[in-house]
Design a protein around this nucleic acid. Sequence first.
DNA 1: ATGAAAGCGCTAACAA
DNA 2: TTGTTAGCGCTTTCAT
Lengths: 349, 349
Amino acid sequence: MPQSRVTIRDVAKHAGVSHQTVSRVINNSQHVAPKTRKKVQASIVELDYRPNAIARSMALGRTCLLACLAPNLTDFTFASLVEGAEVEARKHGYFLISSSAPTPDILQHLLNELIDSRRVSGLIVINPYVDERYSYLPENFPLVFIGSHAREPGISSVTLDDELAGYLAVQHLLSLGHRDIAMVTGVMIEDCAQKRCIGFEKALKEAGITHTASQVIQGDWSATSGRDAFMALTETGKVPSAIFAQNDRMAIGVMQSARDMGISVPEQLSVIGLDDLPLASYFAPPLTTIRQDIIKIGSKAAQLLIANIEEPSHPTHRLTINPELIVRKSTAPFNHQKEEPIELSHNQI
Amino acid sequence: MPQSRVTIRDVAKHAGVSHQTVSRVINNSQHVAPKTRKKVQASIVELDYRPNAIARSMALGRTCLLACLAPNLTDFTFASLVEGAEVEARKHGYFLISSSAPTPDILQHLLNELIDSRRVSGLIVINPYVDERYSYLPENFPLVFIGSHAREPGISSVTLDDELAGYLAVQHLLSLGHRDIAMVTGVMIEDCAQKRCIGFEKALKEAGITHTASQVIQGDWSATSGRDAFMALTETGKVPSAIFAQNDRMAIGVMQSARDMGISVPEQLSVIGLDDLPLASYFAPPLTTIRQDIIKIGSKAAQLLIANIEEPSHPTHRLTINPELIVRKSTAPFNHQKEEPIELSHNQI
DNA sequence: ATGAAAGCGCTAACAA
DNA sequence: TTGTTAGCGCTTTCAT
């Protein structure tokens, strides 16, 4: 009887108590005589009573609903964040509305519908600084950011340790003997792209390598931009022996472009990505990458948000999740390269 | 002032009318004098009043919330369905809770929380027949299925035209001159896998080809199972000249396995998948596949669900979305194959 | 065209 | 320990 319209008063009548006593039983109040409790519970079962969540929200003045706003819901990263947050939310008795907000306009509209009308009691925002969307975000409302730390105080956030991720990627390349290392960045307006650059530079610097600007090419996270970046790189005549792409999609674009140009990976070119997409090991060659635990990021975000909702004085946190190097076949030692690296032959001309 | 606690009565007081008149203005009732309406609207703006959605749901007895239950939220297919449904729902003033229900147990628990407590007013279920989950589904509740048509009357559903998809895939291979065509299936308990088999057989039959059972291998949708399937196929000594994998992930597994065994795609083996994953064109070689418009499937499902909610007498529909052949580089004419197909050399021995 | 009264199903505050 | 009385913010019904 899923559609039961049994109310708390029906149960009260059936059990011969007041509706308030039923409420106490439902909410596990201590002040109920064991005998009464039994009686009420029996009535609840018999009538198949289910508390009405809406009425409960109404009386309590708060909903057990969260929202997660992402640029879209189909990107593997965003989808995984949502899943992580959703599963965690449920553990705490909350549900999650996930909405795709590709533009600031849409985000603003969503905010109206979700927050101003008090539909949800907390909000997770993925990549708040991709555009001006952050300027529409409400103040004095439970908020958690994913992908960037908040630029103003009082908002918790959780991100990958992007600097470390970039550092680890380059360190892996360096450990293989590479010295001429290029990077394809994501959209530079995003914090994570900037942080990954910092890690890149730090590793290079520690190894005593000064890199020229030409070795850093901006992409936009897409595989296509990875292709374009590699083509731009070859046109300069200075093809590096290794490339760090700031995400797997761009790394895959780089690999395809190299393949099209007859440059073999990893013999002539090492490529490392970042993310560890589900099919990363099925590309040719299987992609070496820096893995991020996206589910964990999402679930931590939900945890922080709920803590903030239930205890508004909860301190602000800026969590950072550790990346992990996954070595596959797209990177190889520089020394073992069978043919001369491309840039040398160019240089010799 | 996103946290405005202005109520309908505050507006009423401010405008010097009864709260009921304010309600009429909000709901665009005809029976309001233009002058009064203006006055009230001005007060609404001035006080920045936003109707409380929860209270509205409470009084109306219905929520503007839908839920979409999927085995998980990260698979590209599921994520895209959710996005399609979510965007469509919003167009109609609804929001969508998406939850991952990997097991029937979890699904049952979700059903309790979402439906029995009247949190949502409609439900989209993805792949209801993957396990016994369908047996927990409520009756007399607005329901729409995705991935399978309902086995009982009264429930709308939307699926890919799986039979046509299988048919198109095989027809493409046949048109290239292939005669020895194998198939790697998905989980056979699912309708879509069965339907794709029917399309496979239909195309073969029309071409006058009788296939033996050994040419059909069961997979489980995973890339790994595609690998395994191809290895099993080679072990029989009868390697076909073309393979139809019922989804892209398995097709990619087949391609990798073939590559590992030194069998070149498409020269020695043509491979066609189904889905058209975002990176399908970045595998080696770029994957020929049957594309399904997943966003459309999700959005149609939301449309049907909302129609059913708002007009319970709305007739049941069983929508079927057309697939589309996308030709890339993993399939080639049988005649142009530079080397003898594997199975011939085996047969000649 | 407008207002007053009642109630949606629950919880909180008080009283007994 | 239990019951009674008030709301939560809105809509609906019925007067006026």
